[in-house]
Design a protein around this nucleic acid. Sequence first.
DNA 1: ACCTAAGCGAGACGGTACGTCTCGTCTTGCG
DNA 2: CGCAAGACGAGACGTACCGTCTCGCTTAGGT
Lengths: 197, 197, 197, 197
Amino acid sequence: MNATEEKARRSIGARRNPASAEAILDAAEAVLHEAGYSGFSIEAVARRARAGKPTIYRWWPSKAALLIEVYQRQKRDIVYADTGNIEEDLFQFLRSLFGSWRDTPAGNIFRSLIAEAQFDAAAAEALADYARGRRAYTGKLVERAIDRGEVARGVDPSQIADMVSSYAWTHLLTGRLDESEDKLRAAVGAIVNGIKV
Amino acid sequence: MNATEEKARRSIGARRNPASAEAILDAAEAVLHEAGYSGFSIEAVARRARAGKPTIYRWWPSKAALLIEVYQRQKRDIVYADTGNIEEDLFQFLRSLFGSWRDTPAGNIFRSLIAEAQFDAAAAEALADYARGRRAYTGKLVERAIDRGEVARGVDPSQIADMVSSYAWTHLLTGRLDESEDKLRAAVGAIVNGIKV
Amino acid sequence: MNATEEKARRSIGARRNPASAEAILDAAEAVLHEAGYSGFSIEAVARRARAGKPTIYRWWPSKAALLIEVYQRQKRDIVYADTGNIEEDLFQFLRSLFGSWRDTPAGNIFRSLIAEAQFDAAAAEALADYARGRRAYTGKLVERAIDRGEVARGVDPSQIADMVSSYAWTHLLTGRLDESEDKLRAAVGAIVNGIKV
Amino acid sequence: MNATEEKARRSIGARRNPASAEAILDAAEAVLHEAGYSGFSIEAVARRARAGKPTIYRWWPSKAALLIEVYQRQKRDIVYADTGNIEEDLFQFLRSLFGSWRDTPAGNIFRSLIAEAQFDAAAAEALADYARGRRAYTGKLVERAIDRGEVARGVDPSQIADMVSSYAWTHLLTGRLDESEDKLRAAVGAIVNGIKV
DNA sequence: ACCTAAGCGAGACGGTACGTCTCGTCTTGCG
DNA sequence: CGCAAGACGAGACGTACCGTCTCGCTTAGGT
C-alpha cells in the first residue's frame, strides 16, 4: 500500500504504465479507507496517486469501474467448493462471501458501488456487467449439479445464482452479514428443496 | 401532486408554512420520478417547489431526511392476494410490486433510499425498520400456507419473505424490473418447489 | 490593491457582493502584472481572490469581459480635448492614448484582450462591442467639427474614429508606441487635410 | 495542399523526412483555415498530419515557430494595381487584401501570428519585420503618385502605407472583413482627400 | 554486409485550466 | 420570525492540450 511514491513516475512510452495503474488502485483503496465513500473522488485519487486525472479516465471510464477493480483486488478469495452436493456448495459459497464482506473492506466497497450505480448510468452499467458475470460464474455450481443429475434439467442456473446473490446483496445492504450458519443453510435449503410439504 | 405552483406562495409570517412543506415534498417526489436519484438535489427540489434552499434545510437537515419523508408519504397499494395457492400468491405479489416500482415514483424513491442508507445512518435505520416490517407482512402469506398445510411446518415465514423481497430489491437496484411473467413464476417456483430432480 | 484579504468574505444575501467584485478585479490585475497574459487564467484569479470560479463566471461571462473591466479600471483618463480645432483634438487624443498605453499596464492589458479575441468568440464579441463604443465616443470629436462647419457634412464620424484608433491599435500591437509628436501630427494631418497636392 | 495523406509515410532513416515536414505544414495551414486560431493546437496538427507530436516539437520549438513558417509559405497575390490614380490604386489594394484574408487561410494565419506575437518575442520580431516590409512595399504606390505629381511632396509614403494597413489589420482583428466597397472607397477617400470642408 | 544512429508514428504520462454543477451557508427585504 | 431569492466559497466533474518520455520500426551511411 505504498501510496506516497517518493519519485515522480514518468511515461514509459506508448504503453500502459503498470506502476501508475498500481499506484492509482493503491490510492483509491487508501482514499476509500480514510475518507469513506463520500470522500472518494477521482480528483482525490489522482492527487493521492500523484497521477493526472486523464490517466485515470483513460483506463477506468467511470468511478464505478475503478471501484469494481479495487473491490476485486480487495475481496478475499471466495470458495467455489465442489462437494458433489449442491446444497453444501451453495452454503459454502454464501458463508465465504458473507465472511469476506464482513472481514475485509470489500463489503463496504461493494455497498458503495451499488449506491453509486443508483445515480450514475455508467456505474449502473459497470455493475450490471459485473453482476452478470458473477451470476454466470455462480451458475456453474448449478450446472454441475444438473450434470450430476442432482438438479432438474429445466432449471435455469443463472436464475438460481440470481436468487442466491440477491439474498447476499440484500443482507449486505441492510447490515445483516452476521446471519448464523443455520440461517444460511435454511435459506439454501429452501431454494434447493422447496418449501412444500 | 400539484407540483408546479402557478403563483408564488407568500410568507404567512413567522410560522412554518404548511403549503411550502407540501410543495417541497411534492416537488421532491416529482423530481425523483422524472430525473431519478441522480437528478435529486436540494437545488432541483427548491427550484421545482419555488422554495428557497434554506427553507428546505431548515426542516430537513439532510437529503436522507427528505427522502424518508417522501417515501413514507408514498402509498403502496401492493396486492396481497389470497388465492389459496402460495405459488400464485407470491407470483401476484411480485408482479404487482415490480409493476408499482416500474410505473410510479415508488421505485425510484425506494432505490434512492437504499442508496442513501449506505452512507447515512438515519436512512439506514429507517430502511431497516421498514424492511423488517415488510418481511413480517409478506411472511403472512407463507403463514397462511402453512396453516393450510400447503407448506412445511418448519419453514420460517419471514425468511421466505426475505428471499422473495431480496429478489425484488436486487432487480430494482440493477434495473431489471421488466422480467417476464414466466421468469417471475420460475423464481417463485424455485422457492416453493425446490430445484431438485 | 488589497489582494490578499485577511478574512473570508461572506455572502451579503441575494445581491452582488461589491467586495467580491473588487477583490476579483484586484486579483486579475495582480495576476496580469505578475504572470503576464500567459499566466492569466480564471483559476489563478479565483485562487488569488479567494473566490469561487462560478462567482467570476456569474459576473464576467468570459476571460475577455474580465480583461475589459480590468482595462477600463486601469486606463488613465484619456484626453478628449475640445480646442475648436479637429486636428489638434485628434492629436491630443492620440498622444494621450499612446502615453497611457506606454506608461501604465493598460497597454499590455489591451494587447492581451486583442490576442484573446483572436481565439475566443466571446472575447471577440466583447472586444467588438467595446471598440464600437470607443469609435462612437471618439466620433464625437468629428461630429463637433462637422457642427462647427470645420469638417465636410458627408463624412462618417465613426469611420474617421475607426481610422484613428486603427492607427493606435496597430502601433500598440507592433510595439511602436514611442512615435514622435511630429509623426502623430503628420498622421492626423493626413486624415484631416488629405494628401493630395 | 494534399493534407489528408492516404498512406502512412515511411521512415527514410536517420535524416529529417521532408515529406513529414510538408505534411505538418500542410496540416497546420488546413487546421488554421478550418478551425481558426482557437483550434490550432499542436495536437490537432499532429493528428491531421498523422505525425507524432515529438516530430513537430523537434523541428518547431514553439507554436509561434510553426505559425511563422506556415505564414511565410503562404503566397500572397495581392493586387498592386497601377491605374494612374492613387485613390483607385489604394482601393483596389484594400479590396484585394480583404478578399484574400476572407477567402484563403491567409487571414486566419495572419490573425494568429499577430495574436501569438503578443506573448512570443520571436513571433513579434517576425511580425515586425514583415510589417516593415509591407509598409515599404505599399508605400511604393504613394511614391509613384508623388512622382506623378498627384500627391504632395512632403508626404511620407510609408506613413500612408501604415495608415492603410492599420485600417486593414484592425478590420481583420475585429472580424470586419466584409466592409462594402463604398466603405473602403470612403476610407481611402478620407486619407487621400482629407475630411475638411 | 553489417551496425549504428537518428528520425519516425504512436500514444501514455503528470499536469493545468477549462466551464459547469451542486453543496450548504449567508443575508436581504417583504409579509 | 418565516419566507423566496439568490450570491457566496468551495471543490468535483469530465475534457482538451500541454510538453516530455519511451517504444519498436525503418532506413542511410560508415565501416
